[in-house]
């Protein structure tokens, strides 16, 4: 056991345990953006901690890591658990191989989803170009002739909001809330966040942190877009719009206004507490960054130290 081994252990522990903690944070009445930051930084933290740990194991001189590493080695050696250098190199090689294979699988999943996103976006752009040539290539709203009220947005160049003419039968405040919700998705790059976590979960579904990320991310971005719409047009308008719009029709890569987590979002909108001030929100986001970033290495080192303390109090 060494410092590098502790990093690997920390990354694995967090990858398995973090979804519980992150979902609990999201279920509370917290700023959704802090939740988004928490997930993203945790994912980056786990991947980089794991990669750094693996590479350190492979480095020739990695056993000389100062007092903590020496203590660990002395302790394990004392108990006859001497981990051979060869075994550590093997673990490092396996770790690096896992990282490389994961990256390849992630790249493959991304290119598939990118192709399907381009195809869907292109179909909408073509429709605009054919029916209203003057609007082609411009960000804007594509109105589909349909009595059922629905809306969704698509990432791409140009970014698009697609809405049905049925939406126009709704009160103006609700229409505005729906449009504001979709624009918030586009402005916040929510499609990208959802797509990245979706690709990650397809690349490595075995890791709970990655498997749970897309569902959590979709929920968080919907909450964020609801909050944006509510702050501009009021909670009652967003609530009414959520209940009125049709959840049915939208492309897989699109973010539709009422496709997900409607009961949770209605509950959240019903809570009439005052929104957090900017200082509180900034604090929550900063805390999310710091906590998520340091958790994997700290958990690893903590486990390492506890293991030493339990296994060899004399050392």
């Amino acid at each position: 056991m060494s410092f590098a081994g502790a990093l690997l252990l920390g990354a694995l522990l967090v990858a398995w345990a973090a979804p519980l903690a992150l979902n609990r944070v999201a279920a509370g009445r917290h700023d959704p953006l802090a939740g988004v930051i928490g997930w993203i930084v945790t994912i980056v933290g786990v991947v980089s901690t794991f990669a750094v740990g693996s590479v350190l194991l492979l480095l020739p001189g990695h056993r000389h890591e100062g007092a903590l590493g020496d203590l660990g080695h002395d302790c394990w050696d004392l108990f006859g658990h001497h981990v051979s250098h060869r075994l550590q190199v093997l673990m490092g090689a396996a770790g690096v191989a896992a990282v490389v294979i994961s990256l390849i699988r992630f790249a493959r999943a991304s290119s598939t989803s990118l192709r399907s996103r381009r195809r869907d976006h292109g179909a909408h752009v073509d429709l605009i170009g054919v029916i209203t040539p003057s609007d082609a290539g411009q960000p804007g709203v594509l109105w589909l002739d349909d009595p059922a009220p629905f809306a969704y947005s698509l990432r791409g160049r140009p970014p698009l909001v697609v809405a049905s003419t049925g939406l126009r039968a709704m009160p103006v405040a609700q229409q505005d809330a729906v449009m504001c919700h979709e624009v918030a998705h586009l402005r916040g790059r929510h499609h990208l966040l959802v797509a990245l976590t979706q690709d990650l979960s397809e690349a490595l579904p075995i890791v709970p942190l990655f498997r749970h990320a897309p569902v959590a991310m979709r929920q968080l971005v919907e909450l964020a877009a609801d909050a944006a719409a509510a702050s501009a047009f009021g909670r009652p308008a967003v609530r009414a719009a959520l209940l009125a719009v049709d959840s049915g029709h939208h492309p897989r890569q699109a973010l539709a206004v009422a496709s997900r987590d409607v009961p949770l979002r209605l509950r959240r909108l019903a809570q009439s507490e005052r929104p957090d001030g900017w200082l509180r929100r900034a604090g929550a986001r900063a805390a999310a960054v710091v906590t998520s970033a340091v958790t994997p290495p700290v958990v690893g080192l903590g486990t390492f130290v506890v293991a030493i303390a339990v296994a060899c109090p004399a050392a």
Binding site: R119, G122, H124, D126, L127, A148
Partner: peptide, 26 residues
């Protein structure tokens, strides 16, 4: 061309069959 583009928009839907039936009903 408009019909073809619309067809491709429908194909893009998560549930093309449902979307088609829905459009047929409307």
């Amino acid at each position: 061309a408009a019909a073809q583009a619309m067809r491709r928009v429908l194909d893009a839907m998560d549930d093309p069959e449902g979307a088609l039936l829905h459009f047929a009903r409307s």
